[in-house]
């Protein structure tokens, strides 16, 4: 049971959402955007998150579903993970998001909510980072598009009142090869100890990682090193120079084991890329 009271708003378009947020803030209230609700409701029940109002984004048509046009494929932030998995345009997105939570919960978790959540994993980010996606952000001053890799550093930088509307991926990535490895403590229905996603295209190998550090990341320096170093053993030996933070240690796993998994998995991925020409 959630022990505190709050107001609930369900705007019908982007403008309305931004406006109600601004108005609530002006009234001295603490509003929060809300999509799948799986994180917000859980944290509210546990008392680790407080707010005065929820602004439910699910009724905003522009944020639903996916569309294809000449410069790429647009994914609405409201798409549930199952919708994203079933949209067969980028099977890799499906492969990655299918591992999050369980099937029933994926009928609720949204791309936007997963990527903007507070958990360290945010695994739905991985393919979008690799695909150099554009992220559409809306706020009281309207909508803007930014390269996700610039807007994301440990977390997506959003100013107060801003929210994610959707992501766009260039059509050219449809041809890139992909693979991923996800490791868990014991049960598949669990957070990842490690989730590596990787694609290979004309620019070379690209790698994004969740679970290893306190936030998901894609490291250009790592990719540069990997693409310029033919020897896998050498890569593994030097890899931590390119990891942007310390390796996580918690009650799911020690840093030591996470590192071992990372090294084994990276090796496997590189090995496989070695075979793919």
């Amino acid at each position: 049971m959630i022990s505190f009271d709050f107001e609930y708003y369900r705007p019908d378009d982007i403008k309305e959402a931004a406006e109600v947020y601004a108005q609530l803030q002006k009234d001295g209230k603490n509003p929060l955007y809300f999509s799948g609700g799986t994180e917000v409701i859980t944290m509210a029940r546990k008392g680790t998150l407080k707010f005065d109002a929820l602004i439910d984004l699910k009724n905003i048509k522009e944020m639903n579903g996916y569309r294809e046009d000449e410069d790429g494929i647009y994914f609405g932030a409201n798409m549930t993970l199952n919708e994203a998995a079933e949209a067969k345009v980028f099977p890799f997105i499906g492969e990655v998001v299918r591992t999050i939570g369980d099937h029933t919960i994926r009928n609720r978790i949204t791309l936007g909510g997963n990527i903007c959540g507070r958990l360290p994993y945010r695994e739905a980010l991985l393919p979008f980072l690799l695909y150099d996606a554009q992220v559409y952000i809306a706020g009281i001053n309207g909508k803007k598009a930014l390269p996700l890799n610039e807007a994301f550093n440990k977390r997506l930088s959003l100013s107060a009142g801003e929210f994610v509307v959707g992501f766009k991926v260039a059509g050219k990535f449809k041809n890139s090869k992909y693979q991923s490895i996800r490791k868990v403590r014991t049960s598949e229905i669990d957070y990842p100890l490690l989730h590596i996603a990787s694609i290979k295209d004309e620019e070379g190998i690209k790698i994004a990682v969740s679970g290893l550090c306190a936030f998901p990341f894609r490291s250009y320096e790592l990719e540069k090193y990997v693409n310029g170093t033919p020897n896998t053993v050498e890569i593994i030996n030097n890899v931590y120079r390119f990891i942007p933070a310390s390796v996580k240690e918690d009650n799911l796993a020690t840093a030591e084991y996470r590192k071992a998994l990372f090294e084994m998995s990276l090796e496997k991925i590189l090995e496989k890329w070695g075979e793919v020409k």
Binding site: G37, T104, N107
Partner: peptide, 16 residues
């Protein structure tokens, strides 16, 4: 089920 899809009703608000 919500519109035919299984959902966990403990983490959905009734207003939703």
């Amino acid at each position: 089920l919500m519109d035919g899809k299984p959902v966990k009703s403990c983490i959905i608000l009734a207003v939703e």
